[in-house]
Structures are given as C-alpha cells and as structure tokens.
C-alpha cells in the first residue's frame, strides 16, 4: 500500500528513517520532492504494516494519507492510442489482446507525466 507523506521542514529531520527504526518496517521511497519549506514523499509499505507506519510518521509531525488509486482513466475520452505507455516510469499502462489500454494503478507513483502526455486528457491523478 502507498502512503503520501507530507512534512513541513527542510528535510533535516530524518522522519522516514526514524519511522523505519521505530516500527522495524522496511519501507520503499518511490518518489520524493523536497524544497526549502516542505517536502512530500510517496512510500510503499507492506499492507499489514500500513497503520503502524502511518501512525509513527504522524507522531513525527508528518501528514499521512493513504493513496487508494493513483492514475485514473476516463474511458469516454481514452481512444487507446498508447501515448502513455512508453513515458510511464513504472509501466502502469499496456495493451491487452484487443489493443485496448489497461492500467495497473497499484504501480503508479503519481509522477503525473502521463497526464500531460495524454492527447485526449483522459488521465488524472487523484489521491
């Protein structure tokens, strides 16, 4: 399961590392953006440890949200061209046997590259 962690310092406080030490759960940082006043990290956590890692991060001062589904596709707009396939760093998109686009949202890391690349504005990132 993926958690979106937002923290409001310069990244000097190693809260993700602390959360790992506090809980003993190994987590994978899939994407992180940190600037001068706040930061955001998308972390992948084993499903059964999601709650305790979330609580640990909250105790360390971060906002934590569970990312239910990453990218979503408007089937009325999508024409199954495939413009999204090669630009996705996580291979979320592929063709099925009938040349229809299928998505594996669980792999999505919310980078948003496909949202700009879709010629038909069929993709949105929601979390």
């Amino acid at each position: 399961m993926k958690l979106l962690v937002t923290f409001y310092d310069k990244g000097t406080n190693p809260i993700i590392a602390k959360a790992v030490m506090d809980t003993g759960v190994l987590i994978n940082v899939e994407r992180a953006v940190i600037n001068s006043s706040e930061g955001e990290a998308l972390v992948d956590v084993p499903d059964d440890a999601c709650h305790i890692v979330g609580e640990a991060l909250k105790r360390l001062g971060a906002d934590v949200r569970i990312v239910e589904n990453g990218v979503s596709r408007d089937l009325n707009r999508c024409v199954s061209c495939g413009a999204c396939i090669s630009i996705c760093p996580k291979e979320v998109f592929s063709f099925d046997d009938d040349w229809m686009i299928v998505t594996d949202e669980k792999k999505c890391i919310l980078c948003g590259r496909c949202v700009l690349a879709c010629p038909h504005q069929a993709l949105t990132i929601s979390y």
Partner: peptide, 9 residues
Amino acid sequence: RTSSLSSYR
C-alpha cells in the same frame, strides 16, 4: 519502449 500516438484499436 515504444508508444503509439494513433489508435490501432
């Protein structure tokens, strides 16, 4: 990896 811009479907 390749991407098609036109829709074969």
